[in-house]
Amino acid sequence: GPNNVSMGELDRIAQNIIKSHLETCQYTTEELQQLAWQTHSYEEVKMFQGKPRDVLWQQCAIQITHAIQYVVEFAKRISGFMELCQNDQILLLKSGCLEVVLVRMCRAFNPLNNTVLFEGKYGGMQMFKALGCDDLVSAVFDFAKSLCALQLTEEEIALFSAAVLISTDRPWLMEPRKVQKLQEKIYFALQHIMQKNHMDEDALAKLISRIPTLSALCTLHTEELQAFQQLHPETVNVLFPPLYKELFN
């Protein structure tokens, strides 16, 4: 293997991450397949559109927070993550958890009709109109569609999620070398699996090229939250989940 990592070790890393991913997904692949064509009716979409802006924001903040709790659990089960110093564990999760949520979201996205699972059924972008941030919503939908186009397997989604989370690009890491070693192994494992699964030799490069978009989406989310908070400070302070505020405020 590359850099003195044996194939046995890469395989162990891959198996651990895939298992961690499958154990911490909100929905199994089977559940998502069963739901895939259950879409919100016209009346249900109208109902979302008719909600006050702050109510829908709160609802989305709760959903995101819920998804993040699963991502924290995913991180904890990755071999080596809990061996990082606590500063770096917190830093990686704080800066990467929403990116992982967005990667995981492609599992619950139907690219054939551009709908996403929200509140039990699938619905399109128009469902989120009342949020008042069409740019962010359409960018998130575009991202999900572009990731779906790569037709990743569950194993690849797992390894890519881990690679996004365990990243040396985050500022203020205390032990960047330790994070780098772990990240390199994850990438080797991802590369190995993708070479096996895809005819397209550039599949990994295409996947990696989505990372800047991920980070741009998170920046946009922070900006939209700040703009929302200026208009609805009470909603954020009183009604938003404490974990959401801790991570994004």
Partner: peptide, 14 residues
């Protein structure tokens, strides 16, 4: 500073 995240990391994996 990151009280809840800290707490989630401390909780034993269920």
């Amino acid at each position: 500073k990151h009280k809840i995240l800290h707490q989630l990391l401390q909780n034993s994996t269920s």
